[in-house]
Every structure is written in C-alpha cells, then in structure tokens.
C-alpha cells in the first residue's frame, strides 16, 4: 500500500527538480510534496507536477527508462496536472528536436525558433529565448491574481505550435506570437518556469495546488 501524497513531482533524472520542490513548499507549507520516480506514488498523488529540462529526446528516453510513461499518461487524464518547460512540450504529438514522438495527449508539434531572427529595431534575437517575457493570458483559474502581460522567466529553444485554439491559455512574443501555456480539462502546462518567476510564478503554483478542475 502506497501512502497518498498531496503533490508528486515526477523525477525522471532530467534536470534540477529542487527549485520546483522548494517553490511548491513555499506556496503549500502544509502539503506533503514528494519528488519521486515511483509509479505507485504518482498514481496515488492528489496532484502531479511534470517538469523537464534539457533536450526532449533525452527526457522521453529517461522517462521510459524508468517505466513512468503509463503513470504520467494516467495522471494527465485524471487529476490536476501541471507540465513545466519540456514537461509542456512532451504532452504534444511530435518534436522536431530529434524528430521524435511525444506523449500525444495534446494536438500539436514542437518546433525550433528560427536562427537569425531580428526584432523591429534590427537587433539579433538569440536562441535560446532566455529571460523574462510578457505572458498574455485568457481566463483560467491558474491565472487568478496574475496581471495581464505579467513577466515570467523562460529558457527554451523550441516551442509549441497547435491548430487547436481551444488549448491555448497564453501566448508570448519572440518576435512572433507563440503558445506559452496550454490546458485541457484537468491538465495545465507552461513553457516558462513558474518556480523561477518570483511572485507571479509562486502565485501560479499556489493556484495550481488549490485548483479543483
């Protein structure tokens, strides 16, 4: 019998989950939060956070190497679920990073920012897109208390393209508009790092731990 936990942060060995854990503890001090690679713990958690850093092909491989695919799919269909960064990208059908299939929960593809992009003043736009950018959101409980066009911290070279407009919860500009938050039912996912986005990031995490979709 596996004890129930309030929030499970899925650990498949990619990147640093410490920041996510610390930020969740800050917004939910009474909650039991575990960083885990155990399918049973994920299955029994009330809520699941699915982070990801590095390259998506590595993330997919490491998730499968730990036998976590079914637990992630099940959680994404059944309970409050928050994808972060590559954890957003993995929910879609395909990524041009390594030309690989994602989990296919949401319709869309992951593509790379073009090289040699310029802003309106002609300045070179670097890839990765790194730093604080404005997030233009639609109405959703996870944006409660967060001002329109608030800035969040991003670091990524790939982004999501989807033909399903109903998924899109927020966009950002670099220099063109791109999807930086997607949601459906019990699932919400962001391209930026709420755990590193100061007060607004913590607010989003707090909204997540209180969310009852």
């Amino acid at each position: 019998m596996v004890a129930t936990v309030d929030v499970a942060v899925v650990d498949y060995g990619m990147g640093n989950l410490r920041s996510v854990e610390q930020a969740l503890r800050r917004v939910a001090p009474a909650a039991e939060i575990v960083v885990t690679d155990d399918s049973g713990t994920i299955a029994n958690a009330d809520r699941v956070v699915f982070p990801g850093q590095g390259a998506m092909p590595d993330c997919m491989r490491e998730m499968d190497a730990r036998g976590l695919r079914d637990a992630v799919l099940q959680a994404a269909r059944s309970k409050p679920f928050l994808g972060i960064c590559i954890g957003l990208q993995m929910l879609f059908e395909h990524s041009s990073e390594g030309d690989i299939a994602g989990l296919g929960i949401l319709h869309g593809q992951v593509v790379r920012f073009a090289s040699n992009m310029r802003d309106a003043q002609g300045n070179k736009l670097k890839v990765p897109h790194m730093g604080w950018n404005q997030v233009h959101h639609v109405k959703h409980p996870l944006w409660n208390g967060i001002e329109q066009d608030a800035r969040f911290y991003f670091v990524h070279s790939y982004y999501v393209e989807t033909q399903d407009a109903s998924l899109v919860q927020a966009t950002s500009q670099y220099p063109h508009s791109f999807v930086c938050a997607a949601a459906r039912d019990n699932l919400f996912a962001v391209q930026f790092h709420p755990e590193k986005s100061q007060a607004d990031g913590l607010k989003l995490l707090q909204n997540f731990v209180q969310w009852n979709p």
Binding site: M14, G15, N16, G54, H156
Partner: peptide, 14 residues
C-alpha cells in the same frame, strides 16, 4: 570536453 559533458547531461540551459 567538460562543457560538452555537462551540457549533454544537464542541458545547455544550465
């Protein structure tokens, strides 16, 4: 090679 190994393991972003 340290740069390549560290980026390969933990991602260029860090």
């Amino acid at each position: 090679q340290l740069v390549a190994d560290a980026a390969g393991r933990y991602g260029s972003q860090c």
